[in-house]
Design a protein around this nucleic acid. Structure first.
Lengths: 212, 212
DNA sequence: TAGATTGTTAATCGATTAACAATC
DNA sequence: TAGATTGTTAATCGATTAACAATC
């Protein structure tokens, strides 16, 4: 908390990892951990862990280390897991359906408030407790409910158009599963991309060039 | 190609992005591009693009730029898309099923040679043209077929055990959708992680801390 | 107190950007 | 040839690591 200056994206991207391992430690009934022990299990270096955590405050104690439960709560609150960010999901294809049924949004700081598709066969159907709405109703829905985040599970052909409309209607944050580069087109947005294809191609390179 | 020294992971991770945008340019019938134009559409800087590409050879021409089709072919061959890496997929839950049906492995340098699950209701069933095999047959399958890559779509509770067995049977490369940290436990492995939960929590932080 | 481990500054390392000579 | 743009070196910037004084 406290005087949080400019936290670099590198640090931010490690926070979920800390959170993950701290939960794991709790499930093992370990209630105290040093940065060097944490280093062993996470593969990060001990000074990096200490420096990362110190961006947000001094959670440790000299000579003792960190209290696992306390640190986990601190990290949870830094990430904002206790909040409830309003989100919509657009596109109930393979990926959209999987995301919706597989992930526990509510334990990760989000609340899904609407689910959209353009397929008349899907509209009205129920999936994971959500009734799929007609994408034609999307903008009306946005002006009424002002969702903060849109989860984009759309094919490349339609994503540009829909994202543009969303941005024009005040949606600025995206969890993007499409190949479309939202942040290039729309500068004032916050985007997390999950580019499965890029990940697979990166693996392709690394497997084919193992001598490196 | 040529004298490929130590290519940094930062550069490698941008290769799929170049490949993606080059394909997009081709579909728009654009056959020539400068690094500064490429910079505009990708959001990367022009010197970075030139420097990245020059890790692998001089594909451009002074005063002209890059030939799109040629550069795309070069990048494809650098990544190794023309190869056919033998892969198996383990765990046909939500994510496993989606991966298998949604992605075109063969156009990304891979060939799926086996699909495994431990659920007797699923074993023998057909999914996306693959007959699901009993995970008990996994190690026999590995010693006979020597797959290069294992795609891990397993829950946390079983992943450690199965990965260990795979490593002991010669599998060293992983596309990992689980929360398990393979490379920490097994040092001599190549792992690409898709941590959906980490991605979502990163978005959570960024949405909650927009002033940064 | 002595031992352990943090918090934090300084040093190093690597990646990005700037600049420009080479050259198409 | 003149204009454009690469390839490449040097400068900058940021992130990681090393080191150690502070302190529990």
């Amino acid at each position: 908390m406290s005087k949080r200056n400019k936290i670099s994206l590198s640090v931010i991207r490690r926070l979920p990892k800390y959170y993950r391992f701290l939960n794991h430690l709790i499930s093992q009934d370990i209630n105290r951990i040093s940065s060097s022990k944490l280093s062993e299990i996470t593969g990060l270096t001990a000074p990096q862990i200490r420096q990362d955590l110190n961006c947000f405050g001094g959670f440790g104690q000299q000579g003792y280390g960190y209290n696992v439960a306390e640190l986990k709560n601190q990290v949870a609150s830094i990430i904002g897991i206790n909040k409830s960010i309003s989100a919509i999901l657009i596109g109930i294809g393979n990926i959209g359906k999987t995301i919706l049924t597989h992930l526990q949004f509510e334990s990760m700081g989000f609340k899904i408030n609407g689910v959209f598709d353009n397929d008349s066969l899907k509209i009205g159907a129920n999936i994971a407790g959500f009734q799929i709405m007609d994408v034609n109703y999307l903008l009306d829905f946005c002006s009424i409910n002002n969702p903060t985040v849109a989860i984009i599970c759309l094919p490349m052909s339609v994503v540009g158009d829909i994202v543009k409309k969303l941005v024009n209607n005040g949606v600025r944050c995206f969890w993007n599963f499409s190949h479309y580069d939202i942040s290039v087109e729309h500068s004032n947005t916050i985007v997390e991309n999950v580019h499965l294809q890029d990940s697979l191609l990166t693996l392709c390179y690394r497997v084919n060039n193992q001598e490196n």
